[in-house]
Design a protein around this nucleic acid. Sequence first.
DNA 1: TTGAAAGCGCTACCAG
DNA 2: CTGGTAGCGCTTTCAA
Lengths: 345, 345
Amino acid sequence: MSRMEQGAHRAPVTLHDVAREAGVSYATASRALNGSTRRVRQESASRVRAAASRLGYTPHASAQAIARGSSNTAALVVQDVVDPYFSSIAAGVIEAAEDAGLIVTMAVADRSPGLELQIVRTLRGHRPRAILIVGTRIEGADAQASLVQELDAYRTAGGRVAIVSQPDLPFPTLAIDNYGGARRLARALVGLGYRRFAVIHGDERIRTSLDRCRGFADGLAEAGIAVADRHAIRADFTRAGGRDGARELAGRGGDVEAVFAVNDVMALGAMSALREAGLRPGPDVAVAGFDDIDDARAVTPALTSVRVPLRDLGRQALEVALSDRPVDVVPIAVEVVVRDSTPRR
Amino acid sequence: MSRMEQGAHRAPVTLHDVAREAGVSYATASRALNGSTRRVRQESASRVRAAASRLGYTPHASAQAIARGSSNTAALVVQDVVDPYFSSIAAGVIEAAEDAGLIVTMAVADRSPGLELQIVRTLRGHRPRAILIVGTRIEGADAQASLVQELDAYRTAGGRVAIVSQPDLPFPTLAIDNYGGARRLARALVGLGYRRFAVIHGDERIRTSLDRCRGFADGLAEAGIAVADRHAIRADFTRAGGRDGARELAGRGGDVEAVFAVNDVMALGAMSALREAGLRPGPDVAVAGFDDIDDARAVTPALTSVRVPLRDLGRQALEVALSDRPVDVVPIAVEVVVRDSTPRR
DNA sequence: TTGAAAGCGCTACCAG
DNA sequence: CTGGTAGCGCTTTCAA
């Protein structure tokens, strides 16, 4: 057989075929294969199973969904699959889904609220057991309002929703302690002897970025330290953004001792830029990030960061959504992790 | 309304409701909303659409799938979502799916052939338009054979299949030129003046790893160079693996001028380990990888690699699967990209 | 324990 | 152009 043959050949085998092959009724076949607990004789059951495997039968998930009134999928919306922040969370969601016997449908909103809305609409059509939304920005209220409306309609029809890290939506939310983590990070850095800081942050409409900035600033303020305006740089929320931000920083001069990038990928980008500029990350300029993605530990010098249990967060998101217990906000604790990129000074 | 309310409330709105609300028949409503091209009067159509949006109606994808006999999903199996190799390909698949009006269901096989088989079985149940499998290892023939059988049954029932980078399965395959790329990389490095090499590779049952090793070895052989046994190190196919491999290498001593890691994440890990050992990647020991993930460009020194158009590969995989044109193997060309991690010597 | 049959929400064919 | 209606593949009463 050639690998090229792509046309439809035989008609797909249905439960009907299996029943006939096994010599039992349609209903019995159904019960034996997928029905609730043993209400069918051992022997019939095994005959049916044998027939099914002989024929290569796979239950038609859509048919089951429609007959049962509920599907076995969970829907996940992320902003970017390649970014380890999102993909780590996705990994957790997929893991949990597998445990729950669900398969996940995944869509990428590309940080566009408009696209996100459209995606949710499409996803809704599949009547997933739950819709999980990870990290949208806070944005022009229109798309936001429509999104809420859409999700609300979904939930009214029995759907479950959970949101990760977007604290202002009226749905169960897993809220990462962005503010507190950044604040404690600031304290830790001050404790290590740093006094002159720069911050590389994202668009201020990105709530996550904003919260981390504020937390950091407040943490410094406790020690009477402030970040000079020219040392607060706005950049893309990506690795390239971090690199550009640090380049700009290097260009502006001023004796910065430590730079805080509001997430790890930006921090990693910043480290690269510093090196390009002839500065050793760590010894010459300290660098800290946020999220504690896998790479943070793997890079040299290892990156000081704030650990967010991303994978577990993904798991929890699904569990929370599926849970019958009423849930409002699930606070996600974070933890400062000091590594070599911020040596004692 | 509290964000906590998760119980089912109203019955989901169906096409029936929309029809009634719009004062037209069921059939007309169907045509107006999803049917083929304008066979319905303008006015009725807009009335129906208005009713639909007023009621918050979303067509039930499963019902549509079952009635039409074909779903609007594509299934994707990867080995690991967090690894940028896979997530970049996934990004391409999702992009293409969006263009084709499909949503993608994604599962993670965790580099386990057994799990992969089970996943394909489950996925099959959703009757996706296509099943895409990315990068399984060549392994004990049993799981492999079952997988082929499963996919074959799927295809017999009209499903489409495409495989990325696993050249021995009887399905349309996107074959990355692992051998050729590595071979040309070797030549390039020799051209830059390197003579003493080490290789960090993965399990030899991973075909990709094997092909890259062979290509590299053959490329060196052209210049009469060989890699000493103690300079060929086997490690995990991950960043941590690369780091461990390089540590071991550093421990073994011997004056290695350049190390080739069979993929970029391993190479990045190796760079870290070298730095830990007090060696500067680039000036002291050259490092090269394979894949050209985003990080390869972003890191410092930028990593010499072999560019694989991952995202585009993902796009193509879906297109190939969906195509009616018979396809056998689609060769994916790769390109050596020399950067600062392998300076002229 | 089993079979018959009534749906599930939607599409598509067949008459009007 | 529109309305009726027969399925699509499966689950789940209801009787037997």
